[in-house]
Nucleic acid binder design. Structure first.
Lengths: 152, 152
DNA sequence: AAAGATCGGGACTGACTCAGTCAAGAGCCT
DNA sequence: AGGCTCTTGACTGAGTCAGTCCCGATCTTT
Protein backbone atom coordinates (compact mmCIF):
# COMPACT_ATOMS: atom_id res chain seq x y z
CA UNK A 1 0.00 0.00 0.00
CA UNK A 2 1.33 3.39 -1.02
CA UNK A 3 1.63 5.74 1.97
CA UNK A 4 0.28 9.27 1.90
CA UNK A 5 3.86 10.42 2.02
CA UNK A 6 4.58 8.79 -1.32
CA UNK A 7 1.34 9.98 -2.83
CA UNK A 8 1.96 13.56 -1.74
CA UNK A 9 5.53 13.30 -2.97
CA UNK A 10 4.41 12.16 -6.40
CA UNK A 11 1.86 14.96 -6.61
CA UNK A 12 4.36 17.60 -5.59
CA UNK A 13 6.98 16.22 -7.95
CA UNK A 14 4.50 16.35 -10.80
CA UNK A 15 3.93 20.05 -10.21
CA UNK A 16 7.67 20.66 -10.00
CA UNK A 17 8.13 18.70 -13.21
CA UNK A 18 5.58 20.82 -15.00
CA UNK A 19 7.35 23.93 -13.70
CA UNK A 20 10.80 22.58 -14.48
CA UNK A 21 13.24 25.25 -15.65
CA UNK A 22 11.09 28.14 -14.48
CA UNK A 23 12.63 28.79 -11.10
CA UNK A 24 11.76 27.62 -7.58
CA UNK A 25 8.26 26.92 -6.33
CA UNK A 26 7.18 27.72 -2.77
CA UNK A 27 6.26 24.94 -0.37
CA UNK A 28 3.08 26.86 0.39
CA UNK A 29 2.18 26.97 -3.29
CA UNK A 30 2.68 23.24 -3.66
CA UNK A 31 0.71 22.59 -0.50
CA UNK A 32 -2.16 24.75 -1.63
CA UNK A 33 -2.28 23.56 -5.23
CA UNK A 34 -2.31 19.92 -4.26
CA UNK A 35 -4.15 20.23 -0.96
CA UNK A 36 -1.36 18.80 1.18
CA UNK A 37 -0.79 19.75 4.84
CA UNK A 38 1.99 22.28 4.63
CA UNK A 39 4.23 21.11 7.46
CA UNK A 40 3.94 17.52 6.42
CA UNK A 41 4.94 18.46 2.91
CA UNK A 42 8.06 20.19 4.22
CA UNK A 43 9.15 16.88 5.69
CA UNK A 44 8.57 15.09 2.44
CA UNK A 45 10.38 17.61 0.28
CA UNK A 46 13.30 17.56 2.68
CA UNK A 47 13.69 13.82 2.33
CA UNK A 48 13.54 14.12 -1.43
CA UNK A 49 16.18 16.81 -1.28
CA UNK A 50 18.44 14.76 0.96
CA UNK A 51 18.27 11.98 -1.60
CA UNK A 52 19.24 14.37 -4.37
CA UNK A 53 15.94 14.44 -6.23
CA UNK A 54 15.25 18.05 -5.30
CA UNK A 55 17.16 21.23 -4.70
CA UNK A 56 16.09 24.19 -2.63
CA UNK A 57 16.83 27.86 -2.31
CA UNK A 58 16.21 29.93 0.78
CA UNK A 59 15.12 33.53 1.17
CA UNK A 60 12.95 35.63 -1.06
CA UNK A 61 12.42 34.14 -4.49
CA UNK A 62 13.37 30.77 -3.03
CA UNK A 63 11.57 27.45 -2.96
CA UNK A 64 12.04 23.96 -4.32
CA UNK A 65 12.90 22.74 -7.81
CA UNK A 66 13.83 19.46 -9.44
CA UNK A 67 17.43 18.41 -9.15
CA UNK A 68 17.44 17.12 -12.74
CA UNK A 69 15.38 16.61 -15.83
CA UNK A 70 11.89 15.11 -15.29
CA UNK A 71 12.85 12.36 -17.74
CA UNK A 72 15.51 11.19 -15.33
CA UNK A 73 13.32 10.89 -12.25
CA UNK A 74 11.31 7.70 -11.95
CA UNK A 75 8.26 6.90 -9.89
CA UNK A 76 10.18 4.00 -8.40
CA UNK A 77 12.90 6.26 -7.10
CA UNK A 78 10.45 8.62 -5.44
CA UNK A 79 8.48 5.82 -3.83
CA UNK A 80 11.63 4.15 -2.55
CA UNK A 81 12.81 7.38 -0.91
CA UNK A 82 9.57 7.79 1.04
CA UNK A 83 8.34 4.25 1.58
CA UNK A 84 11.50 2.20 1.40
CA UNK A 85 11.89 -1.00 -0.62
CA UNK A 86 9.26 -1.95 -3.15
CA UNK A 87 9.52 -5.68 -2.57
CA UNK A 88 6.66 -7.31 -0.64
CA UNK A 89 9.17 -9.37 1.32
CA UNK A 90 12.71 -8.41 2.37
CA UNK A 91 14.01 -11.70 0.98
CA UNK A 92 13.15 -10.67 -2.57
CA UNK A 93 14.36 -7.09 -2.35
CA UNK A 94 17.25 -6.03 -4.56
CA UNK A 95 17.95 -2.80 -2.69
CA UNK A 96 17.47 -4.10 0.86
CA UNK A 97 17.78 -7.87 0.77
CA UNK A 98 17.38 -9.64 4.07
CA UNK A 99 17.11 -13.33 4.64
CA UNK A 100 13.98 -14.67 6.31
CA UNK A 101 15.04 -15.79 9.75
CA UNK A 102 12.99 -18.96 9.70
CA UNK A 103 13.51 -19.91 6.06
CA UNK A 104 14.98 -23.39 5.81
CA UNK A 105 15.92 -23.19 2.13
CA UNK A 106 15.43 -20.08 0.06
CA UNK A 107 15.81 -21.94 -3.22
CA UNK A 108 12.74 -24.07 -2.58
CA UNK A 109 10.53 -21.40 -1.00
CA UNK A 110 7.53 -21.07 -3.25
CA UNK A 111 6.26 -17.99 -1.47
CA UNK A 112 9.51 -16.28 -2.18
CA UNK A 113 9.25 -17.22 -5.82
CA UNK A 114 5.81 -15.71 -6.27
CA UNK A 115 6.73 -12.58 -4.36
CA UNK A 116 9.81 -12.19 -6.47
CA UNK A 117 7.63 -12.15 -9.55
CA UNK A 118 5.47 -9.48 -7.94
CA UNK A 119 8.48 -7.41 -7.00
CA UNK A 120 9.94 -7.61 -10.49
CA UNK A 121 6.70 -6.67 -12.17
CA UNK A 122 6.15 -3.73 -9.82
CA UNK A 123 9.70 -2.49 -10.10
CA UNK A 124 9.61 -2.74 -13.86
CA UNK A 125 6.54 -0.53 -14.06
CA UNK A 126 7.66 2.00 -11.48
CA UNK A 127 11.26 2.27 -12.62
CA UNK A 128 10.40 2.68 -16.27
CA UNK A 129 7.89 5.46 -15.67
CA UNK A 130 9.38 8.93 -15.32
CA UNK A 131 7.79 12.19 -14.27
CA UNK A 132 8.00 13.27 -17.91
CA UNK A 133 6.09 10.13 -18.92
CA UNK A 134 3.37 10.95 -16.45
CA UNK A 135 3.09 14.53 -17.65
CA UNK A 136 2.78 13.29 -21.23
CA UNK A 137 0.14 10.81 -20.09
CA UNK A 138 -1.94 13.56 -18.57
CA UNK A 139 -1.61 15.68 -21.70
CA UNK A 140 -2.78 12.90 -23.99
CA UNK A 141 -5.84 12.19 -21.90
CA UNK A 142 -6.71 15.86 -21.56
CA UNK A 143 -6.49 16.30 -25.32
CA UNK A 144 -8.87 13.41 -25.82
CA UNK A 145 -6.39 11.29 -27.73
CA UNK A 146 -6.82 8.42 -25.36
CA UNK A 147 -9.73 5.96 -25.24
CA UNK A 148 -9.80 6.25 -21.43
CA UNK A 149 -9.77 2.51 -21.30
CA UNK A 150 -9.30 2.38 -17.57
CA UNK A 151 -11.89 4.90 -16.48
CA UNK A 152 -14.49 3.38 -14.21
CA UNK B 1 4.47 -5.17 2.04
CA UNK B 2 3.17 -8.60 2.88
CA UNK B 3 2.27 -8.88 6.57
CA UNK B 4 3.40 -11.75 8.75
CA UNK B 5 -0.19 -12.83 8.88
CA UNK B 6 -0.25 -13.40 5.14
CA UNK B 7 3.13 -15.05 5.13
CA UNK B 8 2.15 -17.44 7.93
CA UNK B 9 -1.14 -18.08 6.19
CA UNK B 10 0.60 -19.02 2.95
CA UNK B 11 2.99 -21.32 4.77
CA UNK B 12 0.23 -23.06 6.66
CA UNK B 13 -1.88 -23.39 3.55
CA UNK B 14 1.03 -24.97 1.71
CA UNK B 15 1.30 -27.66 4.37
CA UNK B 16 -2.44 -28.25 4.25
CA UNK B 17 -2.25 -28.45 0.46
CA UNK B 18 0.45 -31.07 0.63
CA UNK B 19 -1.65 -33.02 3.15
CA UNK B 20 -4.86 -32.53 1.18
CA UNK B 21 -7.19 -35.51 1.33
CA UNK B 22 -5.42 -37.12 4.25
CA UNK B 23 -7.53 -35.84 7.09
CA UNK B 24 -7.22 -32.84 9.42
CA UNK B 25 -3.96 -31.38 10.64
CA UNK B 26 -3.54 -29.98 14.16
CA UNK B 27 -2.89 -26.30 14.68
CA UNK B 28 0.02 -27.26 16.91
CA UNK B 29 1.51 -29.38 14.15
CA UNK B 30 1.27 -26.54 11.68
CA UNK B 31 2.72 -24.12 14.20
CA UNK B 32 5.62 -26.39 14.98
CA UNK B 33 6.41 -27.43 11.42
CA UNK B 34 6.46 -23.87 10.14
CA UNK B 35 7.71 -22.18 13.30
CA UNK B 36 4.68 -19.94 13.75
CA UNK B 37 3.45 -18.70 17.18
CA UNK B 38 0.63 -21.05 17.96
CA UNK B 39 -1.95 -18.60 19.27
CA UNK B 40 -1.34 -16.22 16.43
CA UNK B 41 -1.79 -19.01 13.94
CA UNK B 42 -5.16 -19.86 15.48
CA UNK B 43 -6.34 -16.37 14.62
CA UNK B 44 -5.13 -16.70 11.07
CA UNK B 45 -6.68 -20.10 10.42
CA UNK B 46 -9.95 -18.89 11.85
CA UNK B 47 -10.09 -16.00 9.41
CA UNK B 48 -9.33 -18.35 6.56
CA UNK B 49 -12.08 -20.64 7.74
CA UNK B 50 -14.58 -17.82 8.02
CA UNK B 51 -13.83 -16.92 4.42
CA UNK B 52 -14.43 -20.49 3.35
CA UNK B 53 -10.87 -21.43 2.42
CA UNK B 54 -10.54 -23.86 5.30
CA UNK B 55 -12.69 -26.26 7.23
CA UNK B 56 -12.15 -27.51 10.76
CA UNK B 57 -13.11 -30.39 12.96
CA UNK B 58 -13.16 -30.30 16.73
CA UNK B 59 -12.29 -32.95 19.27
CA UNK B 60 -9.87 -35.82 19.06
CA UNK B 61 -8.68 -36.48 15.54
CA UNK B 62 -9.73 -32.97 14.63
CA UNK B 63 -7.80 -30.10 13.10
CA UNK B 64 -7.85 -28.00 9.96
CA UNK B 65 -8.03 -29.00 6.31
CA UNK B 66 -8.51 -27.28 2.98
CA UNK B 67 -12.05 -26.45 2.02
CA UNK B 68 -11.40 -27.39 -1.60
CA UNK B 69 -8.81 -28.59 -4.05
CA UNK B 70 -5.39 -26.86 -3.89
CA UNK B 71 -5.79 -26.02 -7.56
CA UNK B 72 -8.76 -23.84 -6.71
CA UNK B 73 -7.11 -21.74 -4.01
CA UNK B 74 -5.04 -18.82 -5.22
CA UNK B 75 -2.34 -16.85 -3.49
CA UNK B 76 -4.33 -13.72 -4.24
CA UNK B 77 -7.34 -15.02 -2.38
CA UNK B 78 -5.33 -15.89 0.72
CA UNK B 79 -3.51 -12.57 0.78
CA UNK B 80 -6.74 -10.64 0.35
CA UNK B 81 -8.34 -12.45 3.29
CA UNK B 82 -5.52 -11.53 5.65
CA UNK B 83 -4.20 -8.22 4.31
CA UNK B 84 -7.17 -6.80 2.47
CA UNK B 85 -7.05 -5.30 -1.02
CA UNK B 86 -3.98 -5.81 -3.17
CA UNK B 87 -4.15 -2.41 -4.84
CA UNK B 88 -1.56 0.15 -3.73
CA UNK B 89 -4.27 2.84 -3.71
CA UNK B 90 -7.97 2.45 -2.90
CA UNK B 91 -8.85 4.34 -6.09
CA UNK B 92 -7.46 1.52 -8.25
CA UNK B 93 -8.88 -1.36 -6.26
CA UNK B 94 -11.41 -3.63 -7.94
CA UNK B 95 -12.57 -5.28 -4.71
CA UNK B 96 -12.60 -2.19 -2.49
CA UNK B 97 -12.72 0.85 -4.71
CA UNK B 98 -12.78 4.19 -2.97
CA UNK B 99 -12.42 7.57 -4.52
CA UNK B 100 -9.54 9.78 -3.44
CA UNK B 101 -11.08 12.56 -1.43
CA UNK B 102 -8.93 15.27 -2.92
CA UNK B 103 -8.77 13.99 -6.49
CA UNK B 104 -10.01 16.64 -8.90
CA UNK B 105 -10.32 14.37 -11.91
CA UNK B 106 -9.67 10.66 -11.78
CA UNK B 107 -9.40 10.34 -15.54
CA UNK B 108 -6.39 12.60 -15.71
CA UNK B 109 -4.59 11.40 -12.57
CA UNK B 110 -1.28 10.02 -13.72
CA UNK B 111 -0.48 8.54 -10.34
CA UNK B 112 -3.66 6.56 -10.48
CA UNK B 113 -2.75 5.32 -13.93
CA UNK B 114 0.65 4.00 -12.87
CA UNK B 115 -0.74 2.42 -9.71
CA UNK B 116 -3.45 0.76 -11.71
CA UNK B 117 -0.80 -0.89 -13.82
CA UNK B 118 0.91 -2.07 -10.66
CA UNK B 119 -2.30 -3.41 -9.23
CA UNK B 120 -3.15 -5.28 -12.40
CA UNK B 121 0.29 -6.83 -12.70
CA UNK B 122 0.28 -7.91 -9.07
CA UNK B 123 -3.24 -9.28 -9.17
CA UNK B 124 -2.50 -11.18 -12.35
CA UNK B 125 0.44 -12.95 -10.75
CA UNK B 126 -1.23 -13.66 -7.43
CA UNK B 127 -4.58 -14.71 -8.81
CA UNK B 128 -3.15 -17.05 -11.39
CA UNK B 129 -0.92 -18.88 -8.91
CA UNK B 130 -2.62 -21.64 -6.94
CA UNK B 131 -1.40 -23.66 -3.99
CA UNK B 132 -1.06 -26.59 -6.38
CA UNK B 133 1.15 -24.48 -8.64
CA UNK B 134 3.38 -23.63 -5.72
CA UNK B 135 3.67 -27.24 -4.63
CA UNK B 136 4.63 -28.21 -8.18
CA UNK B 137 7.16 -25.39 -8.23
CA UNK B 138 8.83 -26.69 -5.09
CA UNK B 139 8.91 -30.22 -6.50
CA UNK B 140 10.58 -29.14 -9.72
CA UNK B 141 13.27 -27.22 -7.92
CA UNK B 142 13.91 -30.00 -5.44
CA UNK B 143 14.32 -32.49 -8.26
CA UNK B 144 16.87 -30.25 -9.88
CA UNK B 145 14.89 -29.74 -13.05
CA UNK B 146 15.05 -26.03 -12.71
CA UNK B 147 18.00 -23.76 -13.51
CA UNK B 148 17.44 -21.88 -10.23
CA UNK B 149 17.55 -18.70 -12.21
CA UNK B 150 16.45 -16.57 -9.34
CA UNK B 151 18.70 -17.89 -6.61
CA UNK B 152 20.96 -15.23 -5.18
C1' DA C 1 22.87 46.03 8.73
C1' DA C 2 18.13 45.13 9.24
C1' DA C 3 13.72 43.21 7.57
C1' DG C 4 11.30 39.95 5.78
C1' DA C 5 10.86 35.75 3.21
C1' DT C 6 12.00 31.03 3.03
C1' DC C 7 13.63 26.56 4.11
C1' DG C 8 15.43 23.42 8.22
C1' DG C 9 15.25 20.56 12.44
C1' DG C 10 13.60 18.75 16.76
C1' DA C 11 10.33 17.38 19.77
C1' DC C 12 5.82 16.00 20.32
C1' DT C 13 1.14 13.78 19.57
C1' DG C 14 -3.10 10.95 18.90
C1' DA C 15 -4.87 7.32 16.42
C1' DC C 16 -4.05 3.21 14.55
C1' DT C 17 -1.99 -1.29 13.21
C1' DC C 18 1.01 -5.33 13.97
C1' DA C 19 2.14 -9.20 16.22
C1' DG C 20 1.17 -11.36 19.45
C1' DT C 21 -0.66 -13.41 24.63
C1' DC C 22 -4.09 -15.04 28.13
C1' DA C 23 -8.11 -17.04 29.98
C1' DA C 24 -12.11 -19.24 29.49
C1' DG C 25 -15.63 -21.59 26.64
C1' DA C 26 -17.88 -24.78 23.26
C1' DG C 27 -18.10 -28.94 20.45
C1' DC C 28 -16.68 -33.66 19.51
C1' DC C 29 -15.06 -38.49 20.32
C1' DT C 30 -14.24 -42.56 23.11
C1' DA D 1 -17.62 -38.15 31.91
C1' DG D 2 -13.19 -36.65 30.36
C1' DG D 3 -9.92 -35.29 27.48
C1' DC D 4 -8.81 -33.48 23.02
C1' DT D 5 -9.64 -29.96 19.78
C1' DC D 6 -11.06 -25.60 17.94
C1' DT D 7 -13.44 -20.78 19.26
C1' DT D 8 -14.05 -16.42 21.23
C1' DG D 9 -13.05 -12.17 23.52
C1' DA D 10 -10.31 -9.22 25.96
C1' DC D 11 -5.90 -7.44 26.43
C1' DT D 12 -1.07 -5.62 25.44
C1' DG D 13 3.37 -3.54 24.10
C1' DA D 14 5.85 -1.84 20.39
C1' DG D 15 5.92 0.53 16.34
C1' DT D 16 4.16 3.29 12.38
C1' DC D 17 1.33 6.97 10.14
C1' DA D 18 0.04 11.34 9.57
C1' DG D 19 0.54 15.01 11.11
C1' DT D 20 1.45 19.69 14.47
C1' DC D 21 4.21 23.22 16.97
C1' DC D 22 7.99 26.00 17.85
C1' DC D 23 12.15 27.89 17.10
C1' DG D 24 16.14 28.26 14.12
C1' DA D 25 19.30 29.07 10.07
C1' DT D 26 19.89 31.41 5.58
C1' DC D 27 19.15 34.10 1.87
C1' DT D 28 17.65 38.44 -0.76
C1' DT D 29 16.43 43.07 -0.91
C1' DT D 30 16.52 47.66 0.70
Amino acid sequence: MLSKKSKYALKAMMVLAKEYGQGPVLISDLAQREDIPRKFLELILLELKNQGLLQSKKGKGGGYFLGRDPQLISVGHIVRVLDGPIAPLPCVSKMAYMRCRECRDERTCAIRFVMKEVRDATAKIMDSTSLADMLRQVETVVNGKEPLSFAI
